[in-house]
Design a binder for these strands. Structure first.
Length: 916
RNA sequence: GCCCUGGUGGUGGAACUGGUAGACACGCAGGACUUAAAAUCCUGUGGGCCGCAACGCCCGUGCGGGUUCGAUUCCCGCCUGGGGCACCA
């Protein structure tokens, strides 16, 4: 009986489906475990071999946990709203729902092929009304709450209204407008419109008028993390700053909790680093400098208050409000010219050419510490949106300030003596201060606190924390997304009632943009008539909470029952790529914290542990066409000839050897190709690149599953290397894994003799092999070292093979170990060996140390650190006995000659080293 | 520029807390079975040296130092691949 993987896999997939083997209940006496994959965006191109890597890892871990006696939640769904489906709709006139559905069907078929243990009854699709109803509901939670800075949590906005009625906003500084101050009497006197405008400045989801990343080609706004170097992440179109009315999430209020929360979760250092960089917390001080000859002061933000005696000039952002007031007539024209110039420059130009530009305003401030007059400059290198939009420049301690001073010939004050060489700024905090009055002789980092205290005493400033992170743009001028549950009446945003949800996405005639930068929904008369918001939510809305919906996916009265979310709690293991480091992972952490603050769930971090799978790169193959001919030259013969390097489909290449017949058939152009061969073969060029259709280096998992079976495919993906590491795909080694499974099969069946397995008692040697494998594979699986676990299986099977072990009791245990990795294979042999029930419900073997105990050890004996021989010594031998045996050994004596022994190191169970 | 990662045979990788570097697999070479092929099995396989062979010796984890009886592992300095951030004061 042969290993017929195709029949076996189909058979068991049908049985598992029929018996609902992967159905998970929220009621269980077993401990819970939640394993989550980042759900995919169902793109039109389907899966390539890189996508399932993480899914296979999570599937193995889920199955492993299940065998270990856990109630495992392992769901899957689709992040189905988004731009590509809509672009496709614009180009082909197909409704996004239709092509999304088709793509999902295709994904599902591909996923099913690989034999995952998802509970499909819990599938979610973010574009289903039954799902986005609750996305809208959570939006209303955000809209109806504000961040209370005292308790540092989200609170119902109604509470804020009662506070305003009693005391105004005296104790609740306005996050959206820090100058806003009003009393209770003021509040009571405001119109509804004014009151609502003020509340909007507090809401966690708010509508504002601000500079956004506008992408003309996509006709929409993008979030900061969707823009890369001035171009859109999707499509690579130019992005400009534009002032528009937009919805935002006030994520900045959560900056500190998002940062400190990182300490409570297991993310890789790289991932935590990326998030904390994005949040960008910096400690510094705000200092007020009085403007000379004008009744105002300029507030700056600096991280280096210790350098305040080294201030040679001030720089304000071109947008700074004070400029107009303080610029004397003599300088008005120059300033106006400079500001016009800055406005003419696009974001991309600024990033591309980092020129030093600036303009003196003609105004001065007075340094409060030494009463010196300090000139105020304007320059685009100071950003309006960060800190106070103004800085104090200290050229001897800051690189940009130094270059600016040099460029404009501003004299430089040295406050750090020899630590400043006059050629480069010295930004360290280690130098002793000079020229600094009461700070002289103090090391800079120690002076920071002293100055901060002084600022407070003088009433001109204080220590201040700043964040680089901005509020997240939360609206898109697109069709294929969640409608906002908001009506605009008289410029006031009214939320829909919960009972009015979901606000269904209407059908439109065309997907083109609406008037005045509005989305396609603005083209619908009935929609406008109802005064509904015409923007839709961005892609990250639905993905910010899907992991909660899986816990209670069919609930029609709540987004998730408290009982269900209390039972499942945090995601124990989340597996996905690093590309979501600052987008999805940050937003979903924020939403979780809000839902926690409002009492809807009982955990405030969604993901306990994150495992990042590496990216599988493509290994591209090239042919070399002699320029202007149909002659293709083998890689080794190209030399100096003029050739065009062309991608060729990797699936037509065996290693590096091109299948020339297949190549000729590939494209009509190549039908008449000639080849210049080396050793009778056409050898292709090789390069590692991103896997993509356009590079013809994608490999479809379906093809491999058809050729080798899902179990081989699963194990090979794991065998490739550590999951977290990026590596190029190479199909070559898959044979080795396939051979392993066939060899394992032959422990039960022989091609000629048929059944060879027997129901006999195992020997000690066989039990030793088994228990070594249990220990190794359990430990490796536990620490997600799936590649070494696969090799442990190979070692185990090789050893059983050498021992001629065909015993049911041993093999059955091995099959349970193997079940997470090769589920169909294990299930089939489990049945063949006449075991009870399904292997998916079996119990994981328990390691027993007594089977692997050794009595002796082959000790490596080194002399001066170099291994010279091995001596077998009983493990329970005393150190003296070991010494005697070792020194009595002829080879050891030969090496020692007659030199005295300085030291003998004996590490029990490890090694022996003699120092002479 | 700053931060995070990695660098080990022809290839993918192993060595988990400092203790026999190269597990396991691919590839390659040789052999067995076969009319042949596929499949399967066996042997060898880091580089070099002495030698008929055996025993054996030297070198070797990006480079250069250091700590240690002992370093792929720890420390310092550099080279280099990948990723992130980038006028953030």
């Amino acid at each position: 009986m042969e290993y017929q993987f195709r029949a076996i896999e189909q058979k068991w997939q049908a049985i598992w489906k029929e018996r609902k083997s992967y159905k998970v209940s929220n009621e269980s006496t077993k401990p819970k475990y939640y394993v989550l994959d980042m759900f995919p965006y169902p793109s039109g191109t389907g899966l390539h071999v890189g996508h399932p890597l993480g899914y296979i890892a999570s599937d193995i871990y889920s199955r492993y946990k299940r065998l270990k006696g856990f109630n495992v939640l392992h769901p899957m769904g689709y992040d189905a709203f988004g731009l590509p489906a809509e672009q496709f709709a614009i180009e082909h006139g197909v409704h996004p729902a239709k092509c999304t559905n088709d793509n999902i069907q295709n994904f599902r078929n591909q996923l099913d092929n690989i034999g995952f243990c998802y509970d499909w009854d819990r599938e979610v699709r973010t574009c289903d009304a039954s799902y986005y109803k609750w996305t809208q509901w959570i939006f209303l939670q955000l809209f109806n709450s504000y961040f209370d800075r005292t308790s540092k949590k989200a609170v119902d906005i109604k509470h804020l209204v009662t506070v305003f009625e009693k005391e105004g906003n005296i104790q609740h500084a306005c996050p959206g407008d820090n100058k806003l101050q009003f009393t209770a009497a003021d509040w009571m006197g405001y119109s509804e419109k004014d009151q609502q405008a003020i509340l909007m400045h507090y809401r966690l989801a708010f509508c504002g008028f601000g500079e956004v990343n506008w992408c003309e080609a996509l006709g929409t706004v993008l979030a900061n993390d969707e823009v890369i170097n001035g171009f859109s992440e999707r499509g690579g179109h130019p992005v400009e700053k534009k002032k528009l009315r937009q919805w935002y999430l006030r994520i900045t209020e959560y900056a500190d909790r998002l940062l400190s929360g990182l300490e409570t979760i297991e993310f890789s250092d790289a991932m935590k680093e990326m998030q904390s960089n994005w949040i960008g917390k910096s400690y510094g001080a705000e200092i007020d400098f009085e403007v000379s000859d004008y009744p105002a002061s300029l507030r700056v933000y600096t991280t280096r208050p210790d350098t305040v005696f080294g201030v040679d000039f001030m720089v304000v952002a071109p947008e700074h409000a004070l400029i107009e007031q303080i610029t004397p007539d003599t300088h008005k024209e120059a300033v106006a010219q400079y500001i016009t110039y800055v406005k003419s420059r696009s974001e991309r130009e600024r990033i591309a050419e980092k020129k030093i530009t600036g303009c003196f305003t003609g105004a001065y401030v007075i340094n409060p510490f030494n009463k010196k007059l300090v000139p105020i400059w304007i320059s685009e290198y100071v950003l309006a949106g960060y800190g106070t939009g103004a800085i104090m420049a200290v050229p001897c301690g800051d690189d940009r300030d130094f270059k600016f001073a040099q460029h404009f010939n501003i004299p430089i004050t040295n406050i750090i003596g020899e630590a400043f060489n006059g050629v480069d700024a010295n930004p360290t905090k280690e130098a002793k201060l000079t020229n600094s009055d009461f700070l002289n002789g103090i090391v800079q980092k120690d002076a920071i606190g002293i100055v901060n205290d002084k600022l407070v005493a003088m009433g001109i400033g204080q220590a201040k924390v700043n964040y680089r992170m901005r509020d997240a743009a939360f609206s898109r001028q697109r069709y294929w997304g969640e409608p906002f549950p908001i009506k605009w009446i008289n410029e006031i945003a009214y939320p829909l009632k919960e009972s009015e949800l979901p606000l269904l996405l209407p059908t439109v005639e065309n997907y083109g943009p609406g008037p005045d930068g509005e989305g396609p929904l603005a083209n619908i008369a009935s929609w406008k008539l109802e005064n509904y918001e015409t923007n839709t939510m961005p892609g990250f809305a639905g993905s910010s909470w899907y992991f909660i919906r899986y816990m209670d996916p069919q609930n029609e009265v709540e987004f998730c029952s408290k009982k269900a979310s209390d039972y499942w709690g945090q995601v124990d293991l989340y597996i996905g790529g690093t590309e979501h480091a600052v987008g999805h992972l940050l937003y979903s952490r924020m939403w979780t914290k809000v839902l926690y603050d409002l009492g809807h769930i009982s955990f405030d971090e969604p993901f306990k542990k994150l495992l990042n799978q590496g990216m599988i790169q493509g290994s591209s193959r090239f042919v070399y066409r002699k320029r202007g001919t149909q002659t293709f030259i083998s890689a080794g013969l190209v030399g100096e000839q003029e050739v065009d390097q062309l991608h060729v489909d990797v699936n037509m290449v065996d290693g590096v050897e091109l299948d020339t017949a297949a190549f000729k058939k590939w494209k009509p152009d190549y039908a008449n190709a000639n080849f210049e061969l080396e050793d009778g073969k056409y050898i292709c060029g090789v390069e590692v690149e991103k896997m993509s259709k356009s590079k013809f280096n994608t490999v479809n998992p379906d093809d491999l599953v058809n050729k080798y079976g899902a179990d081989t495919f699963r194990m090979y993906e794991m065998f490739l290397g550590p999951v977290e590491q990026s590596k190029p795909w190479d199909t070559k080694g898959i044979e080795g894994v396939h051979r392993f499974l066939k060899k394992c099969w032959r422990l039960c069946f022989d091609e000629l003799k048929g059944k060879v397995w027997v129901d006999e008692a195992p020997t000690n040697e066989e039990l030793k092999v088994l228990h070594k494998a249990i220990k190794k594979i359990e430990e490796d699986t536990e620490r997600h070292s799936f590649n070494t676990a696969v090799s442990a299986f190979m070692i185990c099977v090789n050893e059983l093979y050498d021992l001629g072990c065909h015993k049911k009791s041993v093999l059955s245990q091995v099959l349970v170990l193997l079940a997470p990795y090769a589920p169909h294979f294990a299930e089939e042999l489990w049945q063949v060996l006449e075991n009870e029930g399904l292997i998916v419900d079996a119990a994981y073997p328990v390691f027993e140390a007594k089977y692997v105990l050794e009595t002796a050890k082959e000790y490596p004996v080194s002399i001066n650190g170099k291994v010279r021989t091995n001596i077998s010594i009983a493990l329970d031998a005393s150190e003296d006995a070991v010494k005697a045996i070792v020194l009595g050994n002829a080879l050891v004596q030969k090496w020692i000659e007659d030199k005295p022994i300085k030291k003998l190191i004996f590490v029990k169970g490890k090694m022996i080293n003699i120092v002479i």
